[in-house]
Design a protein around this nucleic acid. Structure first.
Lengths: 106, 106
DNA sequence: TGCACATATGATCATGCGTTCAGATGATCA
DNA sequence: TGATCATCTGAACGCATGATCATATGTGCA
């Protein structure tokens, strides 16, 4: 149990970087190559590659080679669910913190 | 959207510390005072208070005074759900990474 | 009012992490 | 085979973050 928490903490740590979170948000819609992901996240290819390496090491994403590109995708349904719940929470939290904006945009 | 992600990243950052994660795991079972939480997490009162302060600032937990103690609880259903999903994932991930242990303990 | 308990706060310090740059690997095509 | 594209890797730098200690606040009780 305690090691589960430590490992989970690592995964949360991976999700705690806005850039990586943008990568994962983009990957929710399907496979993407490194260059596309870098563009979406607004980061350099190198930084993006570093991030993807970490995410891969912790089984958050999976990669497959396709020609000279490498296509990344979200590793499994658990991670996808976690992201869905988290993003839903983020929207909800904003509605609580800034109700006037929600009202205006509605 | 982009600020949602940044805020979400902050929350994940809070969840990325094993100590704070232990605090939250303990809080899943109900309200707890700081001293109890410190004992459960195996940290000092001071460190625990610092952690709770951060968690409170990001609406992950709520606090109420009761006599000379302060009782903390998980802030809302979203956070609770996120923790549930995450802990379930952690167990699943271990089953994948170390199937022999699961088989033995079953 | 004065003391003791529970919690909160502020400052300091060391460590970890993300970014960047330079260069390496691997793949395609002429 | 050589050139180019896509990605990966390693090292170094700067900043943010967690731990600790000392002290402050706030509450209950004698």
């Amino acid at each position: 149990m305690r090691e589960d928490l430590a490992e989970l903490a690592d995964v949360f740590g991976l999700l705690s970087d806005p850039g990586r979170l943008r990568l994962l948000a983009a990957l929710r819609e399907g496979e993407r190559c490194v260059g596309d992901l870098a563009a979406v996240a607004g980061a350099s290819d190198s930084a993006t590659s570093h991030h993807l390496r970490l995410l891969r090491a912790h089984r958050v994403v999976q990669a497959r080679r396709c020609g000279r590109m490498v296509l990344y995708r979200i590793a499994d349904a658990h991670v996808r669910l976690l992201l869905d719940v988290a993003l839903a929470h983020a929207g909800h939290a904003r509605a609580i913190a800034h109700p006037e904006r929600e009202a205006r945009s509605a």
